[in-house]
Design a protein around this nucleic acid. Sequence first.
DNA 1: CTCTCGATTAGCT
DNA 2: GCTAATCGAGAGA
Length: 195
Amino acid sequence: MMASGRKLVRADYADPRSVRAARFFLGKVLCVQAPDGYAEGVMIETEAYGGRRDAASHAFGNRRTARTEIMFAPGGVAYVYLCYGMHRLFNIVTGPVDSAQAVLVRAVKITAGHELVRKRRVGVAEKDWASGPGRVCAALGIEMHHNRHDLLGETIWIEDRGIVPPARQVKRTPRIGVDYAGVWALKPWRFVWSP
DNA sequence: CTCTCGATTAGCT
DNA sequence: GCTAATCGAGAGA
């Protein structure tokens, strides 16, 4: 952990609106201490999922199942799930209990653990190491067993290093891969920081 | 139980 | 631009 880093606390995950949370997380550093080593990256692309009313969310219609239950927990825990049978996707649960707000981390820029990530992403160009939600997990070593992990612990956490993305470098777009969600797919709830 | 499909990626044309 | 890979969640019978 960098000396200047402030680990986010419960209150940092309490925003009841995941759209604001998604914007807030841009520039924050996602840190993972895995069995094979430590790696971290600055979050540069996030997407908000808006709970039971959002047709793109797994919690749509107040759907509470073994998989989605963790989304209803108070903010500050990990929601990791398997997509297309092979890719892990990492979400930050935000907001108060039962609000089912979540933020998908779609891309990070690796800032520590380069040698480790190079081994995990053999043959992949550095610019592609963590550019995509499945790639973020592959690069940082996030596995299914990290699902439901508390983000205030020593395994996966987020730090504020004082990195502030200039507003003019942050773009909002509709979310990716949620065309099935009708009008909800049109909401500009994806945030991209392009320095 | 069966069936469908996915908050994606890599590799190819 | 196109699509195979790969398997669990969720829905319905």
